[in-house]
Amino acid sequence: MSPSTPGAPASPAGPRTSPPANALFEYVLRLGDDRLVLGHRMAEWCGHGPILEEDIALSNIALDLTGQAAALLALAGEIEGAGRSEDALAYFRDETAFRNALITELPTGDFGFTIVRQFFFDAYSLLLWDVIAKGGHAKLAALAAKSLKEDTYHLRHSSEWVRKLGDGTPESHARAQAAVDALWRFTGELFERDAIDDAAAAAGVAVDHAALAAQWRELVEGVLREATLVVPAAPGAMVTGGRRGRHTEHLGHLLAEMQIVARSHPGASW
């Protein structure tokens, strides 16, 4: 259990883990898995968006995230050096081998939930890419610089919708606030720091998690305020575990759908 502030260590009394042999592989895997899983969730909106423009927007964002995931997982496979391609990593790992944050795997919910989740993630992702793009790992910095440009459009989209929903009708306000309340306790995990992060820092990917969390909170609270939404007063404890492979019951169902074709027909091409 931990304080409900993003940036605070999520598991101060948790088990101490020593970094695995290839910590940078694990680090890049986390980045890739976040985007692969969230991209899949976003893709569920394809054909179901509330209006045509939004259907197109959500599908485009899903594509960007999936594309970013492909490049990140390809890099992870290269760092691992065991011959695993991005496809092998995406389609042939089981649930406990996934390293995405829990917030990315939660079911799509209503449009308000989707938008608030996307907003929380976009704000985190953009700020993180800005740090990694200036970092000392050339290949990862290149992917960060590229993704940052795409995520700038994503954040503008999600933050505008947060304002519209929060400052909209009583119904849209209530749903957006419910989403903020439900999602808040999943945001701490984004700023957790562990041995993998320390090892990544040693490899040139030095992220100051406390500073990142403070920047995130300032950005998020600014938009929520304009949207007449509030940060939950008593959010309860932060929920974490995804980075260590401990997931909600939802990830298994998502993977079943995502992986079945590749696993049923290994090596197939079309």
């Binding site: 423009e53 939004e54 197109i56 927007a57 485009n60 964002i61 594509l63 960007d64 459009y153 989209h157």
Partner: peptide, 13 residues
């Protein structure tokens, strides 16, 4: 501007 996401990734409507 109607939407910053259009018929392809590179276009806005």
């Amino acid at each position: 501007l109607k939407s910053e996401f259009g018929s392809t990734a590179c276009k806005a409507i």
